[in-house]
């Protein structure tokens, strides 16, 4: 009898482990992407913190409701009570949520302030959204004067199903944005035609690119690697086909990359200083 029970337990444990293994083998991403910046990590933490709180509240409230559904049924012969108000209870469930909100808002405020602090950047890059590609201008810091466009390279055949889709389907470009690791990068976003939005999920950085205006965000990648995102503001026909790819490299590699781009620097026609000055005055 006892051995049967043990065997059953062992079989179900193995079954559960098998399911879990199958789940991880599928590798379906279901949570925020692994953070690469401090801000993204903070967002991650904040999200988990709030999710735990709201899940507890949800279980509490609907635990009560489902208990009622289970116990207070007419077909079980339960007679309806006739109470319909209680000032004490009503005050309590107004005040307690208020307190919970303060508990949530406090850490959220700190992250918002950190997100908005674009001061003392090591490198400033202007990002321009076009229908349907991105333009990058290195306007201040090492690499000043480098400028290029970044366009989707996924072939039409893959999109229309005539060829097998590659691993980075819709997330690959001709010219990646290259930045040094552990350096604070300030992004000045603007749009050339309509509103676009520049987003790299792993950086926790998203900014609408608005024609005629410059708005800034920042990120400081703490790991090297290639990170991918997509335009997140509907910008017309090919909104789904203008990805963002950022390659974070070591300082040495970055210096080398800048050297390779020296020729292109001469081609820059716009005075980058002006753009920075305009952004500075817009911030005041």
């Amino acid at each position: 009898m006892a051995s049967n029970w043990v065997r059953n337990l062992a079989v179900s444990a193995a079954g559960a482990a098998g399911l879990a293994a199958a789940g991880s083998a599928l590798a379906v991403p279901w949570n925020l992407q692994a953070p690469v910046t401090r801000i993204a990590a903070d967002i991650h933490g904040l999200h988990e913190y709030v999710m735990i709180l709201v899940t507890l509240i949800f279980i509490g409230v609907f635990g009560a409701m489902f208990y009622s559904v289970y116990a207070h049924r007419k077909d079980k012969g339960h007679k309806a009570a006739q109470f319909h108000e209680s000032t004490t209870v009503e005050v309590l469930w107004t005040v307690i949520p208020l307190v919970i909100l303060v508990v949530i808002a406090w850490p959220a405020t700190k992250v918002v302030i950190a997100q908005k602090d674009t001061s003392q950047a090591d490198l400033t890059i202007k990002v321009t959204g076009y229908q349907w590609k991105w333009g990058y201008d290195y306007v201040k810091g090492e690499g000043e004067g480098i400028r290029f466009f970044s366009t989707l390279t996924t072939p039409r055949d893959q999109i229309e199903g005539r060829a097998k889709k590659g691993a980075n389907y819709l997330l690959e470009v001709d010219n990646e944005l290259v930045v040094p690791v552990n350096k604070k990068v300030r992004i000045l976003a603007t749009g050339a035609d309509v509103i676009h939005a520049w987003w790299v999920p792993a950086f926790g950085a998203k900014q609408d690119a608005i024609p005629g205006f410059i708005r800034d965000i920042h990120f400081k990648a703490e790991k090297t690697g290639t990170f991918r995102g997509q335009c997140t503001e509907l910008c017309g026909k090919d909104h789904g086909y203008m990805p963002i790819v950022v390659r974070v490299v070591s300082q040495d590699e970055y210096t080398k990359w800048v050297g390779e781009h020296k020729d292109k620097k001469a081609a820059a026609t716009e005075d980058p200083g002006k753009i920075v000055a305009a952004a500075e005055s817009a911030r005041k």
Binding site: V61, F62, A64, M65, S68, V69, H72, R73, K74, H78, K79, A80, A81, F83, H84, V89, E90, W93, T94, P97, L98, L101, I104, A105
Partner: peptide, 23 residues
């Protein structure tokens, strides 16, 4: 976030209406 307070009140009231009723 403040909107959560009156919305919460409504949800709590509905659950309290069901509580000890004859459902």
């Amino acid at each position: 976030t403040l909107i959560a307070v009156p919305t919460g009140v409504k949800v709590f009231n509905w659950v309290a209406t069901m509580w000890k009723g004859a459902l």
